[in-house]
Design a protein around this nucleic acid. Structure first.
Length: 201
DNA sequence: GCTGCGATCACCT
DNA sequence: GGTGATCGCAGCG
């Protein structure tokens, strides 16, 4: 899909808080095919979400499982906020907070089909290959320039927002989540079948 | 193409 | 003091 062929909604078309105020697995599936957008000083960077993971209730792999801490505080706030955390001391991962305020649930965004701002993404990542730009949660944050500064940002207000229409025809595959040891059997990872931008098969 | 490992540090126990 | 919702590269074959 070329950038010119896509109508990218402005921040006024961002999904509202009510979108996120549902069961976390439902939101995780529904995010596939929507656009993740970052309005930066050097232009708009955006991609189509092709892979997500739900971190839900009674889930030992969920950062919020053992209650509120300094890191996961945003997860316990209202739905529709951005939760960004550092992993392995060097990468960032971004999530959308879901469910009722106080629950501590979120959807990890794991991969994008890069759409707009590819040259900036290449610069941010230090590589050329489009297939690798946003293939993984750490990589997509680097490509879009999303860091801990954005933790707690309102996804309905920008500069990071999610927009786009439901994609009822997208073929979704559900598997176990990547890189966790607890609750590895729960099929709470969702990805678009056949997308070359999914992080792992 | 696949597997194994080191980097690097904020956060938690 | 230990650990991770990762990534990139070396080494193999």
């Amino acid at each position: 899909v070329s950038a010119e062929a896509v109508f990218l909604p402005s921040v006024s078309g961002a999904l509202p808080h009510s979108f996120y105020d549902r069961a976390t697995t439902e939101v995780a599936r529904d995010l596939l095919g929507r656009f993740l957008v970052h309005q930066t000083a050097v232009g708009v960077l955006a991609g189509t979400i092709v892979e997500t993971e739900a971190y839900g209730p009674a889930d030992p792999a969920n950062h919020a499982f053992r209650g509120m801490t300094k890191r996961n505080m945003v997860m316990f706030g209202p739905p529709g906020m951005l939760y960004v955390y550092r992993i392995y001391g060097m990468y960032w991962c971004c999530n959308a907070v879901t469910g009722r305020e106080g629950l501590g649930e979120a959807v990890l965004i794991r991969a994008l089909d890069p759409l707009i701002g590819l040259d900036v993404m290449r610069h941010n990542r230090g590589i050329e290959d489009v297939r690798l730009l946003c293939k993984g949660p750490g990589r997509l944050c680097m490509a879009l320039g999303i860091t801990g500064e954005r933790n707690g940002a309102d996804l309905a207000a920008g500069p990071v927002y999610i927009a786009g229409s439901p994609q009822p025809d997208v073929r979704v595959i559900a598997t176990g989540r990547v890189g966790i040891s607890q609750a590895a059997d729960l099929p709470w990872r969702y990805y678009v079948a056949d997308s070359p931008y999914v992080s792992r098969r």
